[in-house]
Design a protein around this nucleic acid. Structure first.
Ligand SMILES: [Mn+2]
Ligand SMILES: [Mn+2]
Ligand SMILES: [Mn+2]
Ligand SMILES: [Mn+2]
Lengths: 230, 230
DNA sequence: AAATAAATTTAGACAAACCTAAAACTTTTT
DNA sequence: AAAAAGTTTTAGGTTTGTCTAAATTTATTT
């Protein structure tokens, strides 16, 4: 079945919201899509009629199995294009989301597979989020939030919880990127800031706000599954 | 100013039609876009209100200077994406038009310029059609139709007048592509077929129908400007 | 257990991009 | 120069996706 750009954007947003909170609400989705609750209800009826949703009036909704399959296809395209934009066209990490938001709606399935091959089947996008394969399977990388990382446990930065220019600017200043190895050497309870150490650099401080947007994969042993962004 | 996908498709089609026939008619455009005359009239009013057209009711229309500028921007994107699809993703020449028809509407100007740089500023698309630069300038390659090529005058295949799978199949069989050097060694008046010679191959025959879709650039000296496809 | 507040859905409208059928205009033929 | 034929525009309708305002349902207070 084929879907309009608008339908696809709704499906993908529902997918992301239900990853976090389980059942999704109308207002929730409306604010995510920058639209009004009435518009959401209209679209819910349409998606429900196409069997993409589990939906009870006034009771919230989630994607059906079919809906999830469709969502994963769009997420796959979005993240593959982001990878292309950053690694081939040399876009900055914070510039690609809006463009991928358009490219994800290009219809040709052959294009997606050729792009995937051209990029050598990447497993993660530039923000550290996993790229689903043709069948919707993706690596659920073991991730810990930096806030929860044990002292002196080395870990590799693998994802970020935001894609804002502001975050990118700060990470560049601190010389942190996807792949950076670091350890937490001290935690301060006053402001929940962390003193961290990266090889060949002097120790430096990371604020609570920054730590909360960084997700890492411990170098040995491991832990919980972290939340994931677009 | 920003335009919808639909507006852009109309603008581009008008551009191609007026390249050939001067003033464009409503029915003409309707059949090019596979739509109805009434729909065309609706859109003409909108484009006219935006000063993209010279339009007199019942008298046909052409693009204004502003309209041409917009059209060239879309043509640029279309041909750059076609080049990308063929030379990077290894699509066949006949597979790319439909996909480029969607990709040409992606809005980011920065994307176009980065893509252009990534492709090393190509001057011609996979069908031999010139790619306009950022300012809309493009090489108007000197082209002769194979039908009109002088006997024993060596020339390089530089464009094709169709992009069908059928044509591609035939050209592959005859080992002809963009860049092939050939000379016409004989012309037969009975069926207007040609006997042509390509270096390192035995001479072979080309039908009138095939000759009419091939455009070439003579290796020395030169001639007329040929018609050009998408 | 009311009353109040919040969330959700319905009702009714609107713009964009289409369509069919009928009217208006232009071109061609007799 | 009238009639016929062809082209273009207008009139009125449909679908998709949006909106505001009002009605309905659910959740939270008192
Ligand atoms: Mn999108
Ligand atoms: Mn991403
Ligand atoms: Mn197009
Ligand atoms: Mn082309």
């Amino acid at each position: 079945m084929k879907f309009s750009t608008s339908e696809e954007n709704y499906i993908k947003s529902i997918y992301h919201l239900q990853q976090q909170g389980g059942v999704v609400s109308t207002n929730n989705l409306a604010s995510e899509l920058q639209t009004k609750a009435a518009s959401v209800t209209d679209m819910l009826k349409k998606l429900n009629a196409k069997n993409l949703l589990h939906y009870e009036r006034y009771q919230g909704f989630t994607l059906s199995d079919e809906g999830i399959k469709v969502a994963l296809g769009i997420v796959r395209k979005h993240r593959l294009w982001e990878y292309f934009l950053v690694h081939k066209l040399e876009f900055g990490w914070d510039e690609v989301h809006a463009i991928a938001e358009e490219l994800e709606h290009i219809t040709s399935p052959l294009l997606v597979e050729k792009l995937d091959t051209y990029l050598s089947h990447p497993k993660f996008d530039p923000h550290g989020d996993p790229i689903p394969d043709v069948n919707g399977k993706m690596e659920l990388r073991q991730q810990v939030n930096l806030i929860d990382l044990a002292l002196n446990q080395e870990a590799e930065v693998s994802a970020v919880g935001s894609q804002s220019t502001e975050l990118l600017e700060l990470l560049k200043h601190k010389n942190i990127g996807i792949g950076t190895l670091l350890t937490v050497v001290r935690k301060f309870t006053f402001d929940n800031s962390l003193e961290v150490k990266v090889k060949n650099f002097p120790p430096f401080s990371i604020s609570q706000q920054l730590a909360q947007t960084l997700f890492l994969k411990p170098t040995y042993g491991s832990t919980t599954v972290g939340s994931i962004s677009k």
